[in-house]
Write a protein that binds this DNA or RNA. Structure first.
Length: 353
DNA sequence: ACCATTTGACCATC
DNA sequence: GATGGTCAAATGGT
């Protein structure tokens, strides 16, 4: 990996440059276009952070306990300073904090959607803090007993930053019905639905353990009972890898989050009607979720508004961006064998996406 | 009508 | 008792 990381970093930097160029050419009034570009840049930054982390750990025989592997919200955050302060509660529930930049141009009060569905259940003024702390539970708490929670508080020092504390692990999953496109979530789940990139509710948890260990080698998950309670924000490397390896999954409503191909997938949905000033409402639960995850500033079947011109413009630009990637993948002339990350992932896992 | 958010009250911990 | 965290009725949006 230490040998491949520089190459990957270089590639990502190139892609990032292109997107930045794209950003300069975008119509400034194109709200959704700018948000999309910002998110793409965020994905690149996240990938770079991770690669740097991998590089550093490869170079070190004693990996530090940095927990950036916990990842965070590659899709949604305008930026995330991966400095999670991870600890455990008495019950063994993992808990960590990320600093996330808000996206001022979105007009949101808080950081953008982190890819999960959350329901706010409280807000509290905190002693000595300028801003209140908001409390969120997983949207699937009732339907799937998912115990994940998070707390969001605007930073006192920098009001554009948010401290996001995650508590507990998401145990919610997409049901088989949902995966097959037959599942119809209730309205609440449609609006706040989210996806589990890496989790499988299985008796055999070995794959999950493998993945988690990969993410955070210094925070081993070994107690079965704890697994139900610990949470790791979704992370995009897995889906990146698997979707690259299995392009057939693209567009089938399965996982393609946080990577180029997801962008392609989103693009197909979003630009379904290039002459329309609206984007068609998603027609499948999967796309529903994706829309939600992507947007952050809208929900479920609601519509993004933008101009046809900017959409077409963005469509063309993203297509040109994706072309070399797709070509590289299709021709199998990737400079590296197998996974572009150089890691071998369990076969079963890729089936999940 | 349904659902998410708000907000005051209540509970748990220190 | 002070503070943080959670509950649940009220409120507002769709």
């Amino acid at each position: 990996m230490d040998q491949k990381a520089p190459w990957l970093i270089k590639e990502i930097l190139q892609a990032r440059e292109l997107v930045m160029e794209l950003q300069t050419q975008l119509n400034p009034s194109s709200f959704s276009g700018n948000v999309l570009v910002t998110k793409i840049l965020s994905i690149f930054e996240t990938s770079l952070l991770v690669l740097n982390q991998v590089k550093m750990e490869s170079a070190s025989t004693t990996p530090n306990s940095s927990l950036s592997q916990f990842g965070g919200s590659p899709l949604s955050n305008c930026g995330s300073d991966f400095s999670p302060d991870v600890s455990r509660t008495r019950k063994g529930i993992v808990r960590w904090t990320e600093q996330v930049r808000g996206c001022e141009h979105t007009g949101l009060e808080g950081p953008l959607d982190d890819g999960y569905g959350w329901r706010k259940y409280g807000q509290k003024d905190i002693l000595g803090a300028k801003y209140p702390r908001a409390y969120y539970k997983c949207s699937y708490r009732n339907s799937q007993d998912c115990l994940a929670m998070k707390q969001v508080q605007r930073s006192d020092q920098n009001s554009s930053m948010f401290n996001v504390t995650y508590i507990g692990k998401h145990t919610c999953i997409e049901t088989p019905e949902l995966l097959s496109g037959q599942y119809t979530p209730n309205k609440q789940e449609q609006i706040h639905g989210h996806r589990q990139i890496y989790q499988e509710r299985r008796e055999d948890r070995s794959l999950e353990e493998t993945y988690i260990n990969f993410q955070a080698p210094t925070v081993q998950v070994s107690k079965a009972k704890d697994k139900q309670l610990e949470s790791f924000p979704s992370f995009s490397i897995y889906s990146t890898t698997t979707s690259v390896q299995q392009p057939a999954n693209i567009g089938n409503g399965l996982e393609t989050r946080g990577n180029h191909l997801m962008i392609s997938s989103m693009k197909n949905e979003m630009f379904h009607s290039p002459t329309s000033t609206h984007i068609s409402a998603p027609t499948t639960p999967g796309s529903n979720h994706r829309m939600h995850n992507f947007g952050g500033y809208h929900s479920g079947g609601e519509l993004l508004q933008t101009t046809a011109d900017s959409l077409e413009e963005l469509d063309q630009m993203i297509s040109s961006l994706l072309a070399p990637i797709a070509t590289s993948s299709a021709n199998n002339d990737h400079p590296m064998d197998g996974s572009p990350w150089g890691w071998d992932f369990p076969e079963d896992y890729s089936h999940s996406y």
